[in-house]
Design a protein around this nucleic acid. Structure first.
Lengths: 218, 218
DNA sequence: CGCCAACCTGACCAACTGGTCAAGTAACGA
DNA sequence: TCGTTACTTGACCAGTTGGTCAGGTTGGCG
């Protein structure tokens, strides 16, 4: 009997085969794409398996259920997601720190738009799988970083804005370019101009945020 | 035979009965809620019918298919959606116009969060039903209004930012409070404090946008 | 009151969905 | 080379889903 599998994240067993690693990568990619497009309920494991280039039973050999696949890919996404905020440095220069936070978030949005959309879907669906994370570690992280921002404000180093809403503004504006990509491309009338749009976006965001936060009229 | 029904938007027939109006309203409300939460594929007509308080066949007596229901509610949403931008007045004072545009969008987000989420779902799904609208009348509207903003910029009345990205920023920040409501409430740790959050949000958005756009250092 | 169209429903169906299983094939160390 | 284990699959199943239909009930108007 071989029941060593389904290494979602629980078994303490041996290292994965080459085939295992490769197939899990394929599945992850296909799942990300599919869940990002249709949400958990709307996505079907048939579609995911097809996009991953394997049969449905074979996919279920690696992850034992649709939910398992979803959780695996969501977990990875979530981790990547928080990294930029984690890196906001209390000891750094406020303007520099906020600038590079925005830049990092924009870059993440541009390089992993599907991950952003997956996350958006989860939240839109009511965050049924990650509610605890949101009101747990995410809340805690946000509070910690908001305290840092509040400190900068109190020192007169930036405009007096509500830190948490500022964070929301940054999340909103940066993720927008991933989540609403279709709309943006439609409105701007050029589907292939990703890099150009990204450059313009960064310039605009920077301009508004920086002069909105550091222009001195607190 | 009675086949006068299915007045999605095509038949040129007589005015709707009181029962008709009432049931279509119920269906619309339930459909909005359900599609907003699960997207087109993830929503089921059973759930919609149940939430609307009627049997599935009866619902299908008013709209002949799931897609019909979806299109009806999406169409209405889309109309409401564009109103604030339409009202941006070229003859008005730039700061006043942009301020009230943001305020109107925020208000819309607050009063119709489900509509916002429905729209977000449609875009995330790749906008399969409204692509033409996006690259047609929406694109046109945005271009017209961006020309107005560009005019203000050229007259030195506001900061030199790319108008279309400014519009995206406003869309992103305002809709965020509807689309990511669950996340916001989780992070802020108070589910019932809608009005309070909205007030803080408006203050923060205003502050950043206004001093970002009108603080004079172009 | 009597009639007709509007309204409503349980029962049904074919297609799809998540998931299982027995059995077959490929990889690889001894 | 051979046996064990990892890998893969077609066929299948039970539950769900979008949608139909024949027939029953109700509202309102003459």
């Amino acid at each position: 009997m071989s029941d060593v599998l389904n290494n979602t994240s629980e078994n303490p067993e041996k290292k994965p085969t080459r085939i295992q690693a490769e197939n899990q990568r394929k599945i992850g990619e296909a799942a990300l794409e599919t869940f990002a497009e249709f949400g958990f309920r709307g996505a079907t494991i048939d579609v995911i398996a097809t996009r991953a280039g394997m049969s449905k039973p074979n996919m279920l050999y690696y992850y034992k259920s649709k939910k398992d696949i979803y959780l695996a890919v969501l977990e990875q996404t979530l981790k990547d997601w928080l990294t930029p905020l984690v890196e906001l440095d209390p000891a750094g220069d406020p303007q520099e720190e906020i600038s590079s936070y925005i830049r990092r978030k924009l870059e993440l949005s541009r390089q992993h738009p599907k991950a952003s959309r997956l996350f958006a879907q989860e939240i839109l669906n009511g965050a049924p799988h990650i509610q605890p994370v949101l009101s747990g570690s995410l809340k805690e992280l946000v509070e910690r970083k908001c305290a840092v921002i509040q400190g900068w404000i109190d020192e007169g180093k930036m405009a007096r804005v509500d830190p948490v809403h500022l964070v929301f503004m940054i999340w909103a504006t940066t993720q927008h370019y991933a989540d609403f990509q279709v709309q943006i491309e439609a409105v701007m009338g050029r589907a292939g101009a990703g890099p150009t749009i990204a450059k313009e976006a960064e310039k605009t965001l920077m301009s508004v945020f920086i002069s909105g936060l550091f222009s001195g009229d607190t």
